[in-house]
Design a protein around this nucleic acid. Structure first.
Lengths: 205, 205
DNA sequence: TTGACATGTGACAGGTTGTCGCCTAATATA
DNA sequence: TATATTAGGCGACAACCTGTCACATGTCAA
């Protein structure tokens, strides 16, 4: 987490640093990103940087978490709008994210995530784990739409959904947009209806 | 991939290098692992190392892929033994892997994977993607047990299963073994029966 | 004015990586 | 046997990186 000193900075300087960081993380994969280049581009002395962030990872996490917070808010709205339908909300979240990534301040996030697939969890999963996110969202989920058989099924399902969404978003950067979306729809379908063939005694019309 | 020069090496030297590498990757997370320490521990000069592998990543991938090949073979056997039941095979694969990790040459793999969760995909997914693995395994899967509605459903399902297995294996290193297994069973259950509540007109006994 | 404290600053020590020219040993050719 | 050719062993080196630390500077309260 950034130190309080960082938040006391003049906003202009703060944003300059973050912008330089985003640019660097877009340019090369995480491991190759260099604090050196970031501070140079931002015109911020070495010592100061380490006053704000403990290291590169701290900075990267901050970028991800800022955006993750936005996503969580949006997810809450989408759940409400869809009457608590978890699957519908996730699909709409995909559309929302794709839209936001196309332009504006968060345009770079998509590219960063694509260049750093291993970091996917950092975007969607709270430092405290997926549990934490789910707990804040739980009230908005309509459980009657789901067939949950144990206490933890919701958590497991949520995890599956998050992983799937993340994966789809990343592939959406390289394959055709609709193709990625179609894949998401298919996987959501599998998760809803199950992949095991149904007993013949229970066939749908 | 290691150069042919690497394979021409006397087996003793080759194994010394790989052992040193495993030890280093167990010691610290991937980013912190140092080629320096590996070659020092193995008593191999710098120039030689770069003759065998292009860099640290190349070496790491090699370790993972050696093991991945074993897993794929095992998976093929398990599919045959379970009459092509994909779900049963995955569950047994979990048990198998846990057993192997407890001792022997691959004891370290579990720890490495745990210290480097982001690398999970490298273990299970072929460089060519999950598709490649599935294609080699496809014939052994009994499709009649599955309810696949589009061409790509099997591939999507396979991806879900692999991701889930990897996640469970990693958590199994930290939480109680049976707990991790129980979680895998639950998730497999969700994937089989689906998470959407069934229409009342089609209730099981 | 003076002190106390937060913050800015860049030189520095200690580490890393990949390369490159040189040397050795083994094998093929005349 | 003498010589050419080639694969491989080797370690010094340049170029880079990171995190720290002693010192400079600014700011606010007494």
């Amino acid at each position: 987490m950034p130190s309080t000193t960082f938040y006391n900075l003049p906003p202009e300087k703060r944003e300059r640093l973050l912008a330089a960081a985003r640019a660097e993380f877009v340019r090369v994969p995480y491991e190759e990103a260099s604090v050196n280049r970031i501070i140079q581009a931002a015109g911020i002395p070495r010592g100061s940087f380490y006053m704000y962030f403990t290291d590169k990872e701290d900075l990267f996490r901050h970028l991800m978490e800022c955006y993750a917070r936005l996503l969580e808010e949006r997810m809450a709205q989408l759940l409400d709008r869809n009457g608590g339908d978890l699957f519908a909300a996730f699909l709409e979240l995909f559309d929302h994210i794709r839209g936001v990534w196309r332009q504006g301040e968060y345009r770079e996030i998509g590219q960063i995530l694509c260049r750093n697939r291993q970091m996917q969890p950092w975007l969607f999963l709270d430092r405290a784990g997926p549990e934490a996110v789910l707990n804040r969202l739980r009230d908005r989920v309509d459980l009657s739409r789901l067939d949950l058989q144990t206490e933890t099924d919701l958590s497991d399902l949520f995890h599956l959904l998050v992983t799937t969404l993340a994966g789809t978003l990343v592939t959406a950067q390289t394959v055709r947009e609709e193709e990625a979306r179609a894949r998401l729809v298919r996987v959501l379908g599998i998760l809803q209806r199950g992949a095991a063939s149904k007993a013949p005694s229970c066939e749908e019309a």
